[in-house]
Amino acid sequence: MSDHRHNAIAYAAIILERADGAVLFMERKDTGFADGLLALPGGLADPGEMLVEACARETKEEVGADVAAADLRTAFVSQVLSETGTPVIGWYFHATRWAGDPVNAEPDQCARLTWLDPTALPTDVESTDAAAVRAWHTKSRPTLWA
């Protein structure tokens, strides 16, 4: 009997919301995925790492902000297929509290940071991240399966 199980890629991202309601995005560059598009801070979980821990780590690595795992709330969950057909589970967290001013902490992979109004996202926002922000903001369907 063959084993039909497969490993999925686990991805954690953050909807970092400023007091005025704006959300932080990064313009990706030289990463091999969604380069030139605006995306939420986030990345792949390391082996054995919980998604909430991955989100806090990636937030610190990418934008220099310290967010406590206890301050992260699930905002959206997605499952999509990568270009190679591998399932990617995206877990999106929301936070309104963090320490430090966000900065471009990875200038080799990020062209710039920008704060965007979640009700008026531009067309150059990565599609899954745009869906996550819209669903979180409108408190609509919490998951995306594509």
Rank of each mutant, 00 (worst) to 15 (best):
D3S: 02
D3N: 06
D3Y: 02
H4T: 09
H6A: 14
N7P: 13
A12K: 05
A13D: 04
A13P: 01
I14R: 05
I14P: 07
I15L: 10
L16Q: 13
E17P: 04
E17R: 15
D20V: 08
D20M: 03
G21E: 10
G21K: 06
G21L: 11
V23C: 02
F25V: 10
F25A: 10
E27Y: 03
R28D: 01
K29L: 06
K29P: 02
D30G: 00
D30F: 04
D30N: 14
T31K: 01
T31M: 07
G32R: 02
F33I: 13
G36S: 12
L37E: 14
A39E: 01
P41Y: 01
P41T: 04
G42V: 05
L44N: 15
A45D: 13
D46T: 12
P47W: 12
E49T: 10
E49C: 11
M50Q: 13
L51M: 07
V52E: 12
E53F: 06
E53W: 10
A54F: 10
C55H: 10
A56L: 11
A56S: 15
A56V: 09
T59Q: 02
T59M: 10
T59Y: 01
K60P: 01
E61L: 15
E62I: 09
E62T: 08
V63G: 03
V63I: 15
G64L: 07
G64C: 04
D66R: 14
V67D: 05
A68M: 12
A68T: 12
A68S: 15
A69I: 08
A75C: 03
V77H: 03
V77R: 06
S78D: 05
S78V: 01
Q79G: 08
Q79S: 12
Q79R: 14
L81K: 09
S82F: 06
E83V: 06
E83R: 15
T86F: 06
V88E: 03
I89C: 10
I89F: 07
W91A: 05
W91Y: 12
Y92D: 00
A95C: 13
T96D: 08
R97A: 13
W98G: 07
A99K: 15
D101S: 15
A105N: 11
A105Q: 04
E106H: 08
E106N: 10
P107W: 05
A111R: 04
A111E: 01
L113V: 07
L113K: 02
T114N: 00
W115Q: 10
W115N: 09
L116E: 05
D117T: 04
P118S: 04
P118Y: 03
T119F: 14
A120P: 03
L121T: 09
P122K: 07
T123S: 09
T123F: 03
V125W: 00
V125D: 00
V125G: 00
V125R: 02
S127C: 12
T128W: 07
T128L: 13
D129F: 07
D129Q: 03
D129V: 08
A130N: 01
A132R: 01
R134S: 12
R134D: 09
A135S: 13
A135F: 03
W136P: 00
W136Y: 11
H137N: 08
H137M: 02
H137A: 02
T138G: 13
T138R: 11
S140K: 14
R141L: 15
R141T: 11
P142I: 00
T143I: 11
T143S: 12
T143C: 05
T143Y: 11
T143F: 07
W145L: 12
W145V: 11
